[in-house]
């Protein structure tokens, strides 16, 4: 190895440059991600108010759970871990995440399989499925809110004319249907993304495998389950985890489509509500810290159990 630049070997010189190249990015990420996260966790252990950010006092884990025994012997539990509204939000979030990701994967797989076949106008269709993805979430929420409007919405009108429903339904306002409305819009919006990720996996499967299977007369269903599915499993695993993380932290769609509905109140909405609207800053911070912990545990388990290689380093 040639030595120049004051006796440093080439690889040492490159590593030194790499450090200086990475430093600004790491500094920026520290300021906007690591530091605010640590501050949020710290706030969750205080009784800080929104109106007085620096007046908070350390109260330990009381925002999470505090057990106090009164003189009469009654025990009082307080904190978010015994708050029914919080557990309702946890349940809503988990239900939303699993149902939406399940349908998005299923539909995405179907769309990807169709797009992987050769047919006329494939490019056009592939471009068209990008449209729901490109529309801002707020705009799709408003658009669907209008289409799902109980009096004037097109969906009620179509379903009424087809005889599918007997009377107009207040999709977004009714407790029974609000979650369906949110799920429907989310599935409509993110299936294309899922389809594209799966399609990229499908296109890496060598074509000759299919040709060999065809020559051997293997039935297409068996080809799918025995060849295609195992080969795209890594791509599928990564796509599912990306979607799952997105679904667990969803905020904007629910906030705009079904505001104030207990049936769709999810973790990020309830935590922001406490933090900003109800002046329970520290309590909201505790809830957002719990959401972060839930997501972190979920990701670690998924990567550990599924041995998913997210960094793409393994292929090298």
């Amino acid at each position: 190895m040639a030595t120049n630049d004051g006796g440093l070997s080439l690889s040492q010189q490159r590593q030194r440059a790499a450090f200086w190249f990475l430093a600004p990015m790491l500094a920026a990420l520290f300021c906007v991600a690591a530091w605010p996260l640590l501050r949020t966790i710290w706030f969750s252990l205080t009784n800080t108010l929104l109106s007085d950010l620096y007046g908070g006092e350390w109260i330990g884990f009381d925002n999470y759970l505090s057990i106090r025994t009164l003189e009469s012997g009654r025990v009082i539990y307080r904190g978010t871990l015994v708050d029914p509204a919080w557990w309702n939000a946890v349940w809503n979030t988990v239900r939303f995440a699993f149902v939406s990701v399940f349908f998005e994967t299923l539909l995405g797989l179907i769309v990807a399989l169709v797009l992987n076949a050769e047919f006329k106008g494939r490019g056009l269709v592939r471009a068209a499925i990008l449209i729901p993805w490109a529309i801002p979430t707020i705009v799709s929420a408003k658009m669907w809110a209008w289409m799902l409007n109980d009096q004037f919405g097109i969906i009620n009108d179509i379903m009424l004319n087809l005889g599918l429903i007997g009377q107009k339904i207040a999709w977004t306002a009714s407790v029974d249907t609000a979650m369906y409305a949110v799920l429907m819009v989310d599935i409509w919006k993110t299936t294309p993304f899922m389809a594209l990720l799966i399609l990229a996996g499908l296109q890496m499967v060598p074509r000759d495998i299919y040709e060999a299977a065809k020559l051997d007369g293997v039935n297409p269903v068996k080809v799918f389950f025995k060849i295609t599915l195992p080969l795209i499993r890594p791509a599928l695993a990564v796509a599912i985890i990306f979607r799952m993380l997105d679904a667990l932290r969803i905020f904007d769609l629910v906030y705009v489509l079904t505001p104030n509905s207990a049936a769709t109140k999810i973790m990020s909405v309830i935590s922001r509500e406490n933090m900003i609207d109800f002046d329970k800053f520290a309590y909201g911070a505790a809830q957002s810290t719990l959401l972060f912990a839930i997501i972190a545990i979920f990701v670690s388990l998924y990567i550990w159990l599924g041995k998913v290689d997210l960094s793409g380093e393994g292929q090298k």
Binding site: Q15, L53, S288, L291, E313
Partner: peptide
Amino acid sequence: FRGRGLLLMMILAVSMFPQIAVLAGLFEL
């Protein structure tokens, strides 16, 4: 360099962050 894979994973983790988890701290900032 050493720790490159770990660094990549950390960067990915930040991009997958629930934004609400930093909201209180960012608000203060």
